[in-house]
Design a protein around this nucleic acid. Sequence first.
DNA 1: TTTAATACATTAGAGTCTTAGGTAATACGA
DNA 2: TCGTATTACCTAAGACTCTAATGTATTAAA
Lengths: 112, 112
Amino acid sequence: MHSPELLKGTLQTIILKLLADNGKMYGYEITQRVKELSGGMLTLTEGALYPTLHKLEAEGFLSTEKISMGKRVRKYYLLTPSGNNTAAQKIEDFEAFIITMFKVLQINPQFG
Amino acid sequence: MHSPELLKGTLQTIILKLLADNGKMYGYEITQRVKELSGGMLTLTEGALYPTLHKLEAEGFLSTEKISMGKRVRKYYLLTPSGNNTAAQKIEDFEAFIITMFKVLQINPQFG
DNA sequence: TTTAATACATTAGAGTCTTAGGTAATACGA
DNA sequence: TCGTATTACCTAAGACTCTAATGTATTAAA
């Protein structure tokens, strides 16, 4: 992003929503999907991604499955029931945040 | 806010836009205006506000005027020409950020 | 007269990121 | 086959931005 500081606080929301939509994904796959969906505007760094995945797992929002691909091991992440609720909540929070920001900045949403 | 971490990186944008709209404002006034515009959803803390104002001034985006109100001194902030450009740029960045986030989260904007 | 509101400010510490680095398997072109 | 890019995981140091707490002082209101 041009303004990487705006991204702060949105990483958990992005991860949880992608997993809610896709069932299960592994770390590298998440970085590629984000790049693709954003049209190259947004690139997740691994130094941010992996600690966040581990934190979400430690908090009980994600569980993992290790799948061997030949000699390489992929680590898939999937939402727990608690993670599912949190995903929905984070999206609501994000939408509320945007509405509030539009009010404060007094700009009216124009998309399309 | 419910999700204060979402606010990170937006404070400069908020300050610059308010000054662009209102000509000049002092710190406390900015906190009150934000509270009012957001319907109480967003409260700027002084520990964030004042260092940010000082930083924007040091970067040449803001200039100041001290006005005596009896024994008390108010410090008004106003945009420099450079600050004016930056304000416009920050708003553009914010809008681009939102559009990107909608793409990544695959939610379609519904307002009203 | 004492509490709330106005008005400025700083500091310690928390949280989230970037940058940089490390390891290793697999795919592909020259 | 040899080097490079890509795939795939990971950690650590440091930067940056915020919150919470604290400090000072004036003015308004109960």
